[in-house]
């Protein structure tokens, strides 16, 4: 019984770590602009598919990964410059809708140029899984979880210690005041999109050995990542990790102890409950609406 519990937990941790890593990508852009970037899943796809394409072109794995990350970063900057920046007078909801359009566009490009096949990436460690208490844990999940934690710490340091991070926060709080204080808000926003695309691509590369990758992986992973981010409170890195793990574990326990038919329903009930009692998520700051 105990080994069964361990197995469900590990399964949940694997799922949760993936969702958490995706959720992290949402925080950065949200912090800088209050835009929920629904093209975040597509950055994931560019990370995974870019690596696959470069690998097939003959590049060694580390170089292929680096190239894919770069490609995603550029895609993030281009997305901001071509789609978001020209509509700067528009309100946040319009911008969010623009990101949905951008995600469909990116998916179409990938489908056209890279094809519709699913691809597998090799795992990072030589051993596939380790046995703990009669249950199996994937080494790749440990990679995912470890990198997620490293990223959280890095993001926290970035926002609280570096001038650039503080400038991003200042831009999100009050764009005009930030500009008066000498912050180039346009550059800051470009940077936020570039970095968050990079974060997304990192996630895409690390999860690809577990989930496979294809032109359309961004839809599901992006959605689950967004849900995880919303549970944790949009904008909070710690919240993204906790939200992701909560979502993953609830899926795994439901599939394991209740029925796999309800696997996708139970987590959504939990989300509704959390958002009903804590509208800002578990770690979200209380929003102050000024009129």
């Amino acid at each position: 019984m105990l080994s069964e519990f361990f197995q469900f937990t590990f399964s949940g941790v694997t799922l949760g770590a993936i969702y958490a890593l995706v959720a992290l990508g949402f925080t950065l852009i949200y912090n800088a602009s209050h835009v929920i970037n629904f093209a975040q899943g597509e950055f994931l796809m560019i990370g995974g598919m870019g690596t696959v394409v470069l690998l097939e072109a003959g590049a060694p794995l580390p170089l292929a990964m680096l190239g894919a990350l770069l490609l995603a970063g550029v895609a993030g900057v281009v997305l901001y410059k071509l789609a978001i920046a020209p509509a700067k007078k528009a309100n946040v909801v319009t911008l969010i809708i623009i990101t949905i359009g951008a995600s469909i566009f990116l998916r179409g490009l990938a489908q056209f140029f890279w094809g519709k096949q699913y691809h597998a990436l090799p795992r990072f460690s030589a051993t596939e899984s380790i046995s703990v208490g009669g249950a199996t844990l994937l080494t790749q999940s440990l990679w995912v979880l470890g990198i997620a934690v490293v990223l959280v710490v890095a993001l926290a340091l970035f926002f609280n210690r570096s001038r650039l991070g503080k400038a991003i926060l200042a831009t999100s709080m009050n764009k005009d005041a930030a500009r008066l204080a000498g912050i180039k808000t346009q550059t800051i926003l470009t940077l936020a999109f570039g970095i968050s695309a990079l974060l997304g691509a990192v996630a895409g590369v690390i999860v690809a050995p577990i989930t496979f990758t294809a032109y359309d992986v961004g839809i599901m992973l992006g959605l689950k990542g967004f849900v995880a981010a919303a549970i944790g409170g949009l904008g909070s890195s710690t919240g993204a990790i906790v939200g992701g793990l909560l979502l993953g574990l609830s899926e795994a326990y439901t599939a394991g102890y209740i029925s796999s038919d309800y696997k996708d329903a139970v987590p959504f009930v939990i989300i509704l409950a959390i958002l009903f009692f804590l509208p800002n998520g578990l770690f979200g700051s209380r929003a102050v609406e000024r009129v």
Binding site: F8, S11, T14, T136, I210, A252, A255, G256
Partner: peptide, 10 residues
């Protein structure tokens, strides 16, 4: 889905 180990364990 990206992981079905819970179902397989059952």
């Amino acid at each position: 889905d990206t992981d079905v180990t819970a179902q397989l364990t059952r």
